[in-house]
Design a protein around this nucleic acid. Sequence first.
DNA 1: CGTGGGATTTACT
DNA 2: GTAAATCCCACGA
Length: 230
Amino acid sequence: MISGRDRTALPRTFFDRPVLDVAPDLLGRILVRTTPRGRMALRLTEVEAYDGERDPGSHAYRGRTARNAAMFGPPGHAYVYFTYGMWHCLNLVCGPEGKASGVLLRAGEVVSGVDLARSHRPNARRDAELAKGPARLATALDVDRALNGVDVCLVETDAELPAAPEPDGELGVLTGRPPGRGRVRSGPRTGVGGEGAPYPWRFWIEDDPTVSPYRAHQPRSRARLRTEAT
DNA sequence: CGTGGGATTTACT
DNA sequence: GTAAATCCCACGA
């Protein structure tokens, strides 16, 4: 459940920092998704940092395109991309405008609106699987490209209020309760190969049941399969 | 429990 | 043409 002290909205300055600072700092914080059918809240448990045009694993590595334009925009906005022909993934844009860095939201615990999230993910066996993986997370929260570029910082911080209002927009991020440093782990990013593979820019909360299983990059072309068979 | 293949569009070579 | 920041189901142990 979300208590009053979790509800202060994060200020835009939270995202206007290097992505490698923001990414682990997002763990334990609350993503709020509001749709015409209701509101859901997700405690973030796993994220990955993508560091702009210097990061070979980043969509921005080869410069600006129609798809990645939101990454080049101001921090505190969403970047939603479509992949594998059927899935959406949600990122939060970080750093100074133009640096094109972002945090992929990979997993979380649905702490409010479980029934609504389940209606988007009817095949999920357990609640812990509702948002266990980036495409599952987006599906559970009914996120698609309609949210690409939307502001996630629509509510001003007011530390005097014990329970600040939840975000007015379709997406928002609240303070939540970040885990202690000892509970945060890092390692290589899931499914990222090539030059971007070595960077340990995946961050997760240790022992949390909603964290997705790590999978190394797996080439799947027939040419590569033949190569590996010989 | 683990492994393997199919789905299905977009971006880029 | 082919790989992609993925998921799901079938099948075997």
